[in-house]
Simulated scan of single mutants.
Amino acid sequence: MKDSKPPIIVIKKKRKHVRHGNHGAWKIAYADFMTAMMAFFMVMWLISIADPQQLESLADYFRMPLREALSPGKHQSDATTVIPGGEAGHTVSSAQRIGKSAIYDKEKDRDRRTLQRLKTKIDQLLISDPRLQALRLHLFITMIPRGLRIQIVDSRQRPMFLRGSAKIEPYMAEILQALAPILNDVPNKMSIAGHTDDSPYLLGDRGFSNWELSTQRANSSRRELVQAGLAEGKIVRIIGMSDTMNIKDAPADAPENRRISLLILTHEAQSDIEKENNEAQAVTITAAGELEKVIVAPTLAPDKAHHKPTEGKE
């Protein structure tokens, strides 16, 4: 039998090209690259327009970000740094400043409208109330930056107080009694100032003087308003001005200088008075603390803690 080789069989397989779903991945990478480039150029632009102080704050932030972020700053409103926190405090944007200014202007307008309505109501009362019609010449009502000022002015024919005294005359009491319920209708608080002419006392400022008299007259007016129904806590300040603020163009001894001034305060003026009071309290507390250290510390010294003072001395 003749030998024969087996036939060679060649099998060719065609590869099928499978479409994958990631054929657009390069677009995402390209978009990420463009975003990074835009951010880079934004950072470069911000650095180019920043002043040296802002650049220093920026460098401090990246050197110690935690310390800068947690630092409260000296004054939160005195912001000059672009980084929250830091030595200068938080940045106040232009929008925030505009917003605060708008709120402030809105409050001022509201105050002015409220006080203008009060002025109109008092003017109407002077016309409609028979008790006050003859007293219109004694009342001067004007709008000033700090509020609505109502001045009750004396005259030679009708003095408001007994001469040299803080006792209120009947017609002055009628004016205050008529004003009290109207003043209650507005939320604004008020201050009362007393004024006198320059008629001196025998001892001048060394004894009872126009300073005491003007203050006592202002306080008598306060009592009369409260008795007529003025709400408690409505008055924030009583002051005596003596003869230091005369009416314009009036002689120093003119009766018009003897007057009581009721000032219905704007909220801004009230805040200034309260701020002044808070600052005075802070100074008083600090001074008291320092005095306590001086007085108490020696008393608590170990060698004197159980010392019994001599009889009759402390």
Results as ranks from 00 to 15, higher is better:
S191N: 10
S191G: 07
A193D: 06
A193C: 13
A193V: 06
G194A: 03
G194D: 01
H195R: 07
T196Q: 11
T196H: 06
T196L: 01
T196P: 04
D197N: 15
D197C: 10
D198N: 12
D198F: 02
D198S: 10
D198K: 11
D198G: 13
S199E: 07
S199K: 15
S199W: 01
P200E: 01
Y201V: 14
Y201E: 10
Y201P: 02
L203D: 15
G204E: 00
G204P: 04
G204T: 04
D205Q: 10
D205H: 09
R206F: 09
R206A: 12
R206G: 13
R206D: 15
R206C: 08
R206L: 15
G207V: 03
G207D: 13
G207W: 00
S209N: 11
S209A: 04
S209V: 03
N210I: 11
W211K: 12
E212V: 05
L213S: 15
L213I: 08
S214R: 13
S214I: 08
S214K: 09
T215L: 15
T215E: 08
T215R: 12
Q216I: 03
Q216T: 08
Q216G: 08
R217E: 05
A218I: 04
N219K: 12
S220Q: 15
S220R: 14
S220V: 11
S220K: 11
S221N: 13
S221A: 15
R222M: 10
R223L: 07
R223S: 10
R223P: 05
R223N: 11
R223H: 06
R223E: 11
E224F: 02
L225R: 00
L225C: 05
V226P: 07
Q227L: 10
Q227I: 07
Q227D: 14
A228G: 07
A228K: 11
L230T: 02
A231R: 13
A231F: 02
E232S: 12
E232H: 14
G233I: 04
G233T: 04
K234T: 06
K234Y: 01
K234F: 03
K234M: 12
K234S: 13
V236N: 02
V236M: 11
V236Y: 04
V236T: 10
R237T: 05
I238C: 08
I238A: 04
I238Q: 03
I238R: 10
I239G: 07
G240R: 01
G240E: 01
G240T: 02
M241A: 08
M241H: 10
M241P: 14
S242G: 12
S242H: 07
S242R: 05
D243E: 07
D243Q: 02
D243G: 02
D243A: 04
T244L: 14
T244M: 10
T244Y: 05
M245Y: 05
N246C: 12
I247K: 06
K248D: 14
K248M: 09
K248T: 10
K248N: 12
D249C: 02
D249K: 09
A250D: 06
A250S: 07
A250M: 06
A250H: 05
P251C: 01
P251F: 00
A252M: 12
A252H: 13
A252P: 06
D253N: 11
D253A: 05
A254P: 00
A254Y: 03
P255L: 06
P255S: 14
E256I: 07
N257V: 03
R258D: 06
R258Q: 05
R258S: 03
R258G: 00
R258K: 11
R259N: 04
I260A: 00
S261L: 00
S261M: 00
S261Y: 00
